[in-house]
């Protein structure tokens, strides 16, 4: 009985996850093929057709400038996803260099790097990103750089912890005794064992970064208005919240789905590998929220 119930759980969870993967790949593909799939030009202003409801020509209706909401959504997927990927991979690169250096070398260098990271982490990341953008001016490039700086610290800290953990393993000592050079140690022993948990963190992190991008674009600091981006679209629609809530709800739902799906997938992968708890704890700690 107990066994059966557990089996049922397994399948149900698996179904949920396969659904999650299918939906995610659909979103990614629709973003990838946005130019082919979009029925209309996302930036074409057509005031005659403004604020129309869903129709065959405009599957999700139009906004206050008569632009096709569905097309904007597809192009927005493209921008949000590619920006998030750009930011996460840059963070990964920076974090890998700083974090593994601190973790592998240890001692005074490690303390120094980590104290600098602590100082940056003391300020809530979004506030810090906002103040950096305030200095440099609004725009997607500035936003990307600000987010990379803020997020890299988190990555560095996380990777440093993992590297220290792996470095204590007996097989690293054994490899050292076998005469393996530090560089080879990094590439053959430490980084390969770092990747599986890192992959899971990246899955979770893409969701967070999409949120951050949308939040910054919503308050007008990130992607600027004519370019379709989910956060910017919500911002465009906010004055019409009472009469046409659709303009905010549709891109809002998109953000919600994306983040929820990525989180589900990340948690599932973590659970399968058996380190969800430690990762969640580390992620929470490093995020400081």
């Amino acid at each position: 009985m107990e066994g059966l119930r557990r089996l049922g759980w397994g399948i149900r969870r698996h179904r949920l996850i396969s659904l999650c993967i299918v939906l995610l790949s659909m979103i990614v593909l629709s973003g990838l093929f946005a130019p082919q799939l979009a029925p209309n030009d996302p930036n074409f202003v057509d005031l005659i057709h403004k604020l129309e409801g869903p129709s065959t020509q405009f599957p999700l209706g139009t906004d206050q400038l008569g632009r096709c909401l569905f097309s904007r959504l597809l192009y927005g997927t493209r921008i949000s996803l590619s920006l998030a990927l750009l930011i996460v991979t840059s963070c990964l690169a920076v974090g890998l260099v700083i974090g593994s250096a601190a973790g592998y070398i240890g001692g005074k260098i490690d303390s120094l790097i980590m104290r600098i990271c602590d100082a940056i982490l003391a300020i809530p990341s979004l506030i810090l990103a906002i103040s950096l953008i305030a200095v440099w001016g609004a725009g997607w490039k500035q936003m990307a750089i600000a987010l990379i700086i803020v997020q890299s610290v988190y990555y560095a800290r996380f990777i440093r912890g993992m590297v220290r953990n792996i470095k204590q393993q007996n097989y690293v000592t054994a490899a050292r005794i076998a005469g393996t050079s530090p560089l080879r140690m990094m590439t053959r022993h430490i980084i390969p064992n770092l990747l599986p948990p890192l992959f899971i963190v990246v899955t979770l992190e893409i969701g967070w970064v999409i949120m951050d991008i949308s939040a910054l674009s919503f308050i007008g600091l990130g992607v600027q208005s004519p370019t379709p981006e989910w956060g910017a679209m919500i911002n465009d629609g906010k004055s019409l919240l009472r009469s046409h809530p659709r303009l905010m709800i549709v891109p809002g739902l998109m953000i919600f789905c994306m983040v929820a799906l990525l989180n589900l997938l990340g948690e599932f992968l973590g659970e399968r590998k058996g380190f969800t708890k430690s990762i969640r704890k580390m992620a929470k700690e490093a995020r400081g929220s």
Partner: peptide, 21 residues
């Protein structure tokens, strides 16, 4: 580096002494 060759080790826990990958 030359001495390294002549000085080797076998640890207690055979599983943790090898890289699982």
């Amino acid at each position: 580096k030359r001495l390294r060759r002549d000085l080797q080790v076998v640890f207690q826990d055979s599983y943790s002494a090898v890289n699982p990958r």
